[in-house]
Amino acid sequence: MKITFWHDGDRSVGLAGDQAEVALDMEGLDPADEAAMVADAKRLLGAAFHELWDTGAVHAMTEVEIEQADRISAG
């Protein structure tokens, strides 16, 4: 499973956004353990990217969440 982390930057001051993908090996995990690992990864890695990028809000979505959002926005 891949989780994408990003921040939008601040164009008003010339700060571009950043993006990173992290792959997690979920093989053999049951759905409850997988959900817990994804939630922990979003929280912990989101905080790490916040520090690395020295920026405001860091967003995180799994591949599945991105696909769902794309389908909704496509209408």
Rank of each mutant, 00 (worst) to 15 (best):
S12N: 15
E67C: 13
A60N: 01
E67P: 02
E65C: 01
T4P: 10
A23S: 15
D40A: 07
A36C: 08
R43T: 10
W53S: 02
W6D: 11
A32P: 00
A36N: 00
G28L: 00
A36I: 01
H59S: 12
E63H: 07
G9W: 04
A32K: 03
D70V: 14
G14C: 08
A48E: 09
D70W: 15
A35S: 04
R43N: 06
W6Y: 15
L44K: 12
P31W: 04
D18Y: 11
A69H: 12
L24I: 09
R71L: 13
H7R: 13
I3F: 09
A41N: 00
M26R: 03
Q68M: 14
F5N: 07
L15Y: 13
G46M: 10
F49G: 03
H50G: 01
G56N: 14
L44Y: 15
G28C: 02
E67Y: 02
T55K: 00
K2G: 08
D54T: 10
T62N: 06
S12T: 11
W6G: 02
A32D: 01
E51C: 07
F49S: 05
H7P: 08
G9D: 02
A69C: 10
A47H: 04
H7A: 11
D25A: 08
K42R: 06
L44A: 14
A48G: 12
E63K: 15
D54S: 13
